[in-house]
Amino acid sequence: MTNENLIQYIYGIADNSLILGQRISELCGHGPTLETDIAMTNMALDLLGQTRSYFQYVAELSPKAITEDDVAFLRTEREYKNVLLVEQPNTDFAYIIVRQYFFDVFHFMFLKALENSKNINFQAIAKKSLKEVSYHKRFSGDWLKRLGDGTEESKQKAQKAVNDLWAYTDELFHMTENDKVVAEAGYGVDTTSFKDEYYAVITALLQEATLDVPETKYFQKGGKHGIHTEYMGYILSDMQYMQRTYPDMKW
């Protein structure tokens, strides 16, 4: 296993936090109440904080003299390895919460496993992030129950979001060739090992939220190989705007 294997592996983890953090940041100032706005922003800050830890590590591993910002802002779309789920738009609060919950449960299980990595950097980041993500999972899960078992309108909206976003859950467990290499070396995580547990957990919550569990077996994938949805280009043009327009400057 080479440093390049590790770097690619980190993209697969950290880009999820980066892109979801970016997505939630878009909401700051537009939430349904001030209280919710503040809570969601806390999640964005946690995710971006995690991203920084990972990318600072990438900068250390890289043979080139690069910074966390080069990693975050100066890759091409193909080089971002986040799953498609996190780049889905903020269609409405139901989408935001379902997207968050589907990701949070995975994220939590992933970090639990990453805590046992042979790599001490991964251990440390996982340990710190677990506390944050454990709270995210509770927040999004509690909200999903409220939307599902709230009013007729909220139930419909939540069900639609669940149906639409369900197709993006399977990709969370897709192991790329690189993922396998890093997992076999004892540094990475075999996500297939907790796939059943994941579906059991979200199924139980959906039932508690009086929502139907989708039966579709058709899933979307591509993000982990850099093949993204059309949304990604817009996310990046926003996010990279300054660095692309004014290259090589300090901010």
Binding site: T33, E35, T36, I38, A39, N42, R138, F139, D142, R146
Partner: peptide
Amino acid sequence: SLHAPDADMALKNARDVYTR
């Protein structure tokens, strides 16, 4: 103070608003 739909949410909102 703050607004919340129930005690559980009030506790969470309080954490996010007052212990940042």
